[in-house]
């Protein structure tokens, strides 16, 4: 093995070379394709999760469907959508949104179930109307459970985007294809390191958000 694992000069030359495949541009595309699904997933999962927590008969079928969705291989979904949405970022974003939903809906339901009954009753007794009770009492208590789900959704979304490279929209995943075709380690290593680093940063941001959103937990500790 004469070829070194990392050629630093390649990174320096390709970080921002002005082309569509400079590492910086790929990183930006990667961030868009990874985070849009997570944000969209969260926005859809909150009302759906609340509905499932409120109407118990909805819960089993919803979780069943989400289990099935989660089992579908990403490459297969990308390929099927290719005929509808073409070689665009949407083709990657839609399946990843579905995967996020599969993680986040159960998380929202579990979060709502983690609200102790006596707390809910106290809120009613204090005169909280349903909407205010939801936003001021129940959702804040559900935050840790929901954010635990959000961490899983964000990290897997970031890592799954790269599979999209096989259909031409993979953000940093392009580096894996490039490295494979040229038998050249550096882009592959750079891609793996950046994906893992991005996942780590996202994870830390969510942990920080949790500390901000649940100040009482900090005070107790």
């Amino acid at each position: 093995m004469d070829e070194p694992l990392v050629r630093w000069d390649w990174i320096a030359r390709n970080w921002d070379n002005g082309g569509p495949t400079s590492v910086k541009v790929l990183l930006e595309n990667h961030i868009v394709m990874a985070f849009v699904p997570v944000i969209a997933g969260l926005l859809i999962a909150i009302p759906l999760g609340l509905a499932c927590a409120r109407y118990r008969w909805l819960y089993q079928p919803t979780v069943g469907i989400m289990n099935v969705v989660y089992s579908l291989p990403s490459l297969a979904l990308f390929s099927i959508l290719l005929s509808v949405t073409g070689l665009t970022q949407t083709t990657v974003i839609i399946p990843l949104t579905l995967f996020s939903l599969a993680v986040l809906i159960p998380a929202v339901v579990d979060g709502m179930r983690s609200v102790p009954d006596h707390v809910r009753q106290s809120a009613v007794a204090m005169g909280f109307q349903p909407m205010r009770r939801l936003t001021r009492v129940e959702l804040p208590i559900a935050v840790p459970v929901v954010l635990a789900g959000l961490r899983v959704a964000a990290v897997s979304s970031i890592s799954l985007v790269s599979v999209g490279a096989l259909i031409g929209q993979g953000g940093l995943g392009y580096l894996f294809i490039d490295g494979w075709q040229r038998q050249f380690y550096t882009p592959i290593v750079v891609g793996i390191v950046l994906v893992v680093a991005l996942a780590l940063v996202a994870d830390l941001v969510i942990i920080a958000a949790q500390r901000l959103l649940t100040p009482w937990a900090r005070r107790r500790a």
């Binding site: 093995m1 899983v152 990290v155 897997s156 970031i158 890592s159 799954l160 790269s162 599979v163 490279a165 096989l166 993979g170 940093l172 995943g173 580096l175 894996f176 294809i177 490295g179 494979w180 038998q183 380690y185 592959i188 290593v189 891609g191 793996i192 994906v195 893992v196 996942a199 780590l200």
Partner: peptide
């Protein structure tokens, strides 16, 4: 196990097979 979830499968495959 948490770190493993962040590893991109395509990148890992390509790297190991090349190596």
């Amino acid at each position: 196990a948490n770190a493993a979830r962040a590893l991109p499968t395509l990148g890992l495959l390509v790297l190991v097979v090349l190596l």
